[in-house]
């Protein structure tokens, strides 16, 4: 028969082999994810259940030498730092994205864009080092100077929530800018023309048409920023002081030294004994769950859009 498959055709054999190899490669990410999930949960979950899930999550004391493992202060630390960093970083990031796509003259955009790319590439330890020296010094002067009579002594070192917030806000800027800019760029030209045709100014068009149309993409950018912030480790360790305590509520919180979930793992894994290590993996599970929730939110958001 004329078009029949030839069993020993060289290119068909090659095609078959290539396909199998590529398939195996494609499985690598699922396998990795499976292994990560398995190992982290396998190490941490039995401990968490033995210790008591509520005691572990809501316990306020972390003292591995006495086998007391409560991570609530770290959860509070991570959440405070992340939320405040988003409050600063998100509006600025979205503003820069709007500026880049809608307003910036080409020459200016040509400078700003690579600058953002570079900012994204700077290692977190370098930003942490900058924070450790410049920002901490500044905050220390403020807290030991004008604010000294209002703050407890432990809050006057400069290592604080505020330092972490500033550093994180800087670090999430590139993520928020690039993803928001993509979604703003994707707003159809006709929407804008429709608005201009009604006599709206450029700003009215941006504020009432472009940004609302790009809303879900911008929201996704913010959510991914949250993920990035909650997972950040090194720069945070270098500036937040890492002491396990729940800060005094009120404005003083800003100057409180805290420890985050990620920091807890990074600081103690090196010397942890078996049970202590399991507790750290259990901390990892909490972090993991945060990330899964955040990612499911973006997935949900994308479903709604399409």
């Amino acid at each position: 028969m004329k078009f029949q498959k030839e069993k020993n055709n060289k290119s068909n054999i090659e095609e078959g082999i290539v396909k199998v190899i590529l398939f195996i490669m494609a499985l690598s990410s699922v396998i990795s994810l499976g292994l990560i999930t398995f190992f982290v949960f396998n190490e941490g979950l039995p401990f968490m259940i033995n210790y008591g899930i509520t005691d572990f999550i809501f316990g306020t004391t972390w003292n591995p030498t006495d086998q007391v493992y409560g991570i609530f202060p770290m959860i509070v630390g991570s959440v405070i730092v992340t939320v405040l960093a988003m409050l600063i970083g998100a509006p600025i990031g979205i503003a820069v994205a709007v500026y880049l796509v809608e307003i910036a003259p080409r020459r200016v955009a040509k400078i700003v864009k690579p600058a953002i790319q570079l900012l994204e590439g700077i290692p977190s330890v370098v930003i942490g080092l900058f924070g450790m020296v410049v920002i901490i010094d500044l905050l220390r002067r403020i807290s030991r100077g004008p604010l000294s009579e209002y703050l407890p002594a432990g809050y006057q070192t400069g290592y604080s929530v505020l330092a972490g917030v500033l550093i994180l806000a800087i670090m999430i800027l590139p993520t928020i800018i690039s993803i928001s800019a993509d979604s703003i760029r994707a707003v159809p030209q006709e929407y804008k023309e429709g608005s201009y045709a009604m006599g709206a100014t450029k700003w009215q068009t941006i504020f009432r048409v472009v940004v609302p149309a790009a809303k879900s993409g911008i929201l996704a950018a913010v959510i991914l920023g949250v993920g990035r912030a909650i997972g950040e480790t090194m720069a945070i360790i270098m500036v937040v002081g890492n002491s396990v305590q729940i800060p005094i509520p009120g404005w003083e919180t800003l100057f409180a030294p805290v420890r985050t979930l990620t920091g807890n793992i990074a600081l103690e894994m090196g010397y942890a004994g078996p049970e202590h290590r399991q507790a750290l993996f259990a901390t990892g599970i909490i972090l993991f769950i945060f990330i899964i929730i955040i990612n499911s939110l973006t997935l949900l958001l994308r479903r709604r859009r399409t």
Binding site: L33, I36, L224, G227, G231, T233, T262, A266
Partner: peptide
Amino acid sequence: LAAIPSIV
């Protein structure tokens, strides 16, 4: 996999 924090 991309979203997992590097510490994990």
